[in-house]
Design a protein around this nucleic acid. Sequence first.
DNA 1: GACTTCGATGACAGCGCTTGCAGGCTAGAA
DNA 2: TTCTAGCCTGCAAGCGCTGTCATCGAAGTC
Lengths: 334, 334
Amino acid sequence: MADVAHRAGVSVSTVSRTLRGLSTVSDTTRARVETAARELSFAITRSASSLVTGRTGRVAVLMPNLASWFLSSALSGMAPALREAGLDLLVYSVSDVHERADFFDRLPARRNADALLVVSFALTPAERARLDDLGMPLVFVSQHAPGRPSVYVDDEDAALRGTRHLLNLGHRRIAFLQTFDETGFAWSSKNRLAGHLRALADAGLEHDPSLVMSVPGWKGSGMATAVGRLMSLQAPPTALFTETDDLAFRLLAALRAANVSVPGQVSVMGFDDHVMAGVMGLTTLAQPAVELGRTAIALTRAVIDDSDGAHARHIVLPTELVPRGSTAPPPTGN
Amino acid sequence: MADVAHRAGVSVSTVSRTLRGLSTVSDTTRARVETAARELSFAITRSASSLVTGRTGRVAVLMPNLASWFLSSALSGMAPALREAGLDLLVYSVSDVHERADFFDRLPARRNADALLVVSFALTPAERARLDDLGMPLVFVSQHAPGRPSVYVDDEDAALRGTRHLLNLGHRRIAFLQTFDETGFAWSSKNRLAGHLRALADAGLEHDPSLVMSVPGWKGSGMATAVGRLMSLQAPPTALFTETDDLAFRLLAALRAANVSVPGQVSVMGFDDHVMAGVMGLTTLAQPAVELGRTAIALTRAVIDDSDGAHARHIVLPTELVPRGSTAPPPTGN
DNA sequence: GACTTCGATGACAGCGCTTGCAGGCTAGAA
DNA sequence: TTCTAGCCTGCAAGCGCTGTCATCGAAGTC
């Protein structure tokens, strides 16, 4: 900054004021400083300015992994919004129990960011407490946190509409497939299942527990087993609703392997509108992952700037049913 | 830190030395300081220490987007390696020309990270020069940069083996499909195509330009058009090799829509071993994306610590052909 | 016993930036 | 002309740490 000041023939104070856009700088000086800064391609040393201001110019994101469609889409939405705000993105991906314990023990984000976005991360009460006395604003993304700024979709309502679509097509025996990883069930499972069950109840159908099935994560043949179990029931389902598109893709593969035609014999519906859903012709509930990321950043900025009510604002984004070729009326005779 | 010093009855220098584990502190003093620090739950302000040491404890990553299988997998590999090294991850996703110009204009990473990883990012000479006088170590990932630390796979060799597999199955007319986005062809296209052509030449086959086709990114019906064109040739291909798995998935969908059976009428081979490739039964060339990320961080640490030769080390990771159901001998009569 | 050596600690000068305060300058008012 | 009021701009004091150098005693050496 001293270099810029020298080149522009002013003091560092003036350079600082100019670069931060304070209005007390004359137009001519401002122009000179900006030219000098550009010529030297000056980039501010955030450590120094944070030391004085207490602001880091960085936003941290905590997520359970980095390689899922939803999370990388959400990040994609955040990136441009952050760039526009001149904020940098710090990513903490905490995918196993060991990393998780370490993260909450050391809290590396402390004093390294102006806010922490917690994305699709089911916190234990103890973890929640740890984050609370981190002394930095928290924003919850893709999950609802009472009394805290949150951005999410209404999973229950979306799932309700999904099941309703299947009911409207004439299905009466509809299975629900959910998944879990080593950490346990994902945040959304509970709400999506609840929506599904509510739709069934609304239609006056009785809940049949044998039609709700849990399939372990990517590895293994869990899906084939699940399909086998469902298809050997006394009265097999005519439609399958999966908690996520990823699960639906695996399901479609397992059904193909089992020579069960879709949607001829069974209909399949997913949840997410993963990029591949269009390619696979999967009927699904679109959730605006990118938009969720963008909105989360907007809310985060409001929280950092301490705007009115931002500290407890809840933003619910809409979901849409996207009908494609994987759903159809049940085969006649059902 | 002053509080801790006061409570422990020592100077801040001693607290600093203790907390950084320097050996010139007596055991009794160390114990007193550590107790005081714990009681006050002291957390160091990294901005302050970076300001004096010049180290930020952060590594920046520059990538063309965040939502592709390859890039998010690479990030997944980096995260644990960074955590282990006590480094934080700063992500710059630069996906359109506007953002790109802005990034190279402002160079926000300058002085805000200890190294910059350039991942799958085809730099123009001017951009390359900009990064060079950034004054921070550069590491190239998934791309080869002469004279610079790089971690990548041998795309040409991998593609050569892929085409060889098809040749060995008996195919003689093999099409190659590549893709591009608004920025132009991806880094890897050129090398993969080169490997493909070399395999053909090695087999004594003449290169037929009508069998190399470019398909635009995700949107539109480019794939259907490409399939139509290929399948209406005088002598249509019996095998299709795509530059990426993503492209192969779209191809499979287009072929299914066109009632072309795979692998009955045509074989399809991808490149990447995307998670979905297993689900789709796609034969492909596996590239170790996660491992690439992990290795890149190891190399980055060496470069930051200025280890011998790290500044120009090249690490080439292996690729593997993964045969699945989408490839088979050509239909008889070809 | 006088001198050297060395381990342990404290004092202090920054690192690059922000910000309160003082001061110079210009212009309009008296 | 003199005075007052604004505008701009520079000065200088830190922000919380690190690292150099000086200091001080205790232990070792002859």
